[in-house]
Design a protein around this nucleic acid. Sequence first.
RNA 1: GGGCCGUUAGCUCAGCGGUUAGAGCAGUCGCCUUUUAAGCGAUUGGUCCUGGGUUCGAAUCCCAGACGGCUCACCA
Length: 538
Amino acid sequence: MDWADELAASVEGPQVVNDSKTPSGTVHVGSLRGPVILDVIARALRARGTATSLLYGIDDLDPMDAQALLTPDAIEHEMGRPLAHVPDQAGDCHPSYARHHAQAFIDTFAGLGIHPDRYYWMSDVYASGVVDPFIRAALDRAEAVRAIYRRVANVQHPADWHPLQVVCESCARIGTTIVTRWDGERVFYECRPNLVSWAHGCGHSGWIPPFGGRAKLGWNLEWAAQWSIFGVTIEPSGKDLSTAGGSRDRADAIAREIFEREPPLNVAYEFLNIGGRKMSTSRGLGVAAHEIVRVVPPEQLRLLFLRPRPQTAIEFDPIGSDAIPRLFDEFDRLADATAGHPVRGELPAGYASVFRYSLLDPGADVAVIAAAFRPAFGHLALLRQIPGVDIDARIETEKGAPLTRLETATVRERTAAADAWLATFAPDKARIAVQRDRIPDEAGALEPDQCTWLGQLAAAALAAVSGPPASGDAWQALIFSTAAAAGLVPGRAFGALYLAFLGRPNGPRAGWLLASLESAFVLERLRVAAGEPVQESA
RNA sequence: GGGCCGUUAGCUCAGCGGUUAGAGCAGUCGCCUUUUAAGCGAUUGGUCCUGGGUUCGAAUCCCAGACGGCUCACCA
């Protein structure tokens, strides 16, 4: 954890760590990296005894510009209006669209152990009047703002452009208005039908005092104003904003030259890519946050995001791969190392911090958690596919002692994650499925002595005085005895069973697998595999 | 066109100035009357993208280039 601890060591005095987000719709997994980085920075600062407050802003006065989540008849009416003024489409008792979607990501953050000291809503902040001095400064110095856009971003605004958008008094849209004059107390604005492609203004124009929430600063200026209002000293930002000439450069220049304040320390971070491509639910790539959270518990998700340096792109491809089991294994390896156990492979610098910052509870007893027994994810995924396995009892046996409450909770969490993984992302090779309809094609690879033995096993099972074996133990014993009698080494005997039932050369403990199936089916399959002339019924 | 990131074993990656470059998976070989052979043990495999430079010493730092990717360039 060089990066967060080094950052924390490089700053002096009390710190205000801030980030903000427009509550425009669904959050995808990749957009959780910023909040995790934010939280880890705050934890690293506090770990050094630095007074730190963590703020999170909700830019709910931003215009509605994504119609995907609106009902068809609401699109024409709502597009371009402030998100805080758009009704909640879900109808689940939130006062606005913004409140609904903001609540979704606030809940997601809390589930990841991220608890800002305070959430602030820009609609409230504007209404309180604290932004007014910054609106006044921006309007008074509009020419300087335009010059910054030209110089920093090579953006040429018209000579009468002002960095402010008014909420139209006639149609209540904000995304469609442009301010062209400022007399020191009032602005003149127009609500233009074709200012933006995604919403249509009503054509109204007029003079209005732009204070107390009747207007909002342009995005880059609003960002810089937030820094001044809240005294922000550190603010991470994604690479889409951190690029040269991008929003962050403009906001930095505006902070210095218009609001006369040094901008906060930036921590630019890269995105999460799926198979080398940016996640995008609309392109069918990647996975929504609520979807991945079912398969990857919070502490493993935190690890995924905080382990690499922020400026390094994360390649994560959970679909049909072993990426998720590997993530768990890495977590366990870090836990073992933190607990002082020997581990294989190289450890990252500051591995104990990496582990500690991965934990949900910042005040947790790291030594106790690190030393806890935890079953490997891949092992659990296998156990879940074998009928009749009592997971708790099984894991307890492997530990050799009763499970603590923490360990039991971990087993539960991982079991649920393994089930979800098997149902979604797991590659076929991780799945075990008895091929019931007909004998697998792979069984064609059986050699004559294996076929012969399978027939002998069926015969022995049928001839047993007490009928075919009913228990795993009994089947297992019969497998060994008949294989020995046939002169077949056990490995080839088991291999034959796996091919005949699963279509793969290996599998779970064979006796128990057979015991979980009806005897009639088992006997019939054995005979078919042996090449005996039986009719395979459905 | 600008910016950022990456390039290390077949694959995914760690190592980020200091012995002979590591791990997991895959591969190969060995080990079964039963802690699940989805295990255990051993083992193969590398011009650390290329070319210069700095240094006693470079995968690691600097410069240039190649390739791959993301991102910005209208608004937020």
